[in-house]
Simulated scan of single mutants.
Amino acid sequence: MLVGRLSKCSRNILKSSFASSHLRSFATHSKSTTIQPDSYESNKKTETNKLEKSLAKFWEKVTIGNSNDGSYTIELDGKSIKTPLGFEMKIPKNKKTLAFLLANEWKSLPSLQIKPFLVPLTSLTARCIDLNEAQITNDDEIKTKIGDLSTIKNLLLRYLDTDTMLVFSPREDCDGELRKEQEKCYRPLIEDMENFFTKFSDDGEPVKLTYLDCDTDGLIGNQQTKHTHIAVLNYLNSLSTWDLVALEKAVLVGKSFLAGVTILRNADYNDKFNLTIDELARLVSLETVLQTLRWGEVEDTHDVDKVDIRRSLASVAIIAHNSKPE
Score class of each variant (00 low, 15 high):
Asp217Ile: 01
Phe273Pro: 04
Asp202Met: 06
Pro206Asp: 01
Tyr235His: 14
Asp217Ser: 05
Asp278Glu: 14
Ser240Ile: 03
Glu205Lys: 14
Gly221Ile: 11
Val232Lys: 09
Leu219Val: 02
Asp213Trp: 07
Met193Gln: 12
Lys208Gly: 00
Ile230Met: 06
Phe197Asp: 08
Tyr211Leu: 12
Glu194Gln: 15
Gly260Thr: 08
Asn266Arg: 12
Phe273His: 09
Phe200Thr: 04
Thr262Asn: 00
Ala267Gly: 08
Tyr269Ser: 01
Asp202Ala: 13
Ser238Lys: 11
Thr241Met: 14
Asp192Thr: 12
Glu194Leu: 01
Leu252Tyr: 04
Asp213Glu: 11
Leu233His: 10
Phe200Tyr: 15
Val207His: 10
Leu239Tyr: 03
Gly218His: 03
Asp213Thr: 07
Phe257Arg: 10
Thr228Asp: 05
Val245His: 11
Ala259Cys: 15
Glu194Pro: 01
Asp202Tyr: 02
Thr241Gln: 06
Asp215Lys: 12
Asp203Ala: 05
Asn237Cys: 13
Ile263Phe: 02
Phe200Leu: 06
Leu252Ser: 09
Arg265Leu: 01
Glu191Gln: 14
Glu279Tyr: 07
Leu209Ile: 07
Asp217Arg: 01
Ile230Ala: 12
Lys199Ile: 04
Ser201Arg: 01
His227Thr: 03
Asp217Gln: 05
Ile263Trp: 02
Asp278Tyr: 03
Glu248Gly: 08
Asp192Trp: 01
Ser240Tyr: 07
Met193Asn: 09
Glu194Thr: 00
Asp268Trp: 07
Thr276Ala: 08
Gly254Lys: 08
Ser256Glu: 03
Asp278Leu: 12
Thr276His: 05
Leu264Ile: 11
Cys214Pro: 00
Lys249Thr: 14
Ser238Met: 10
Asn270Phe: 06
Ser238Asp: 13
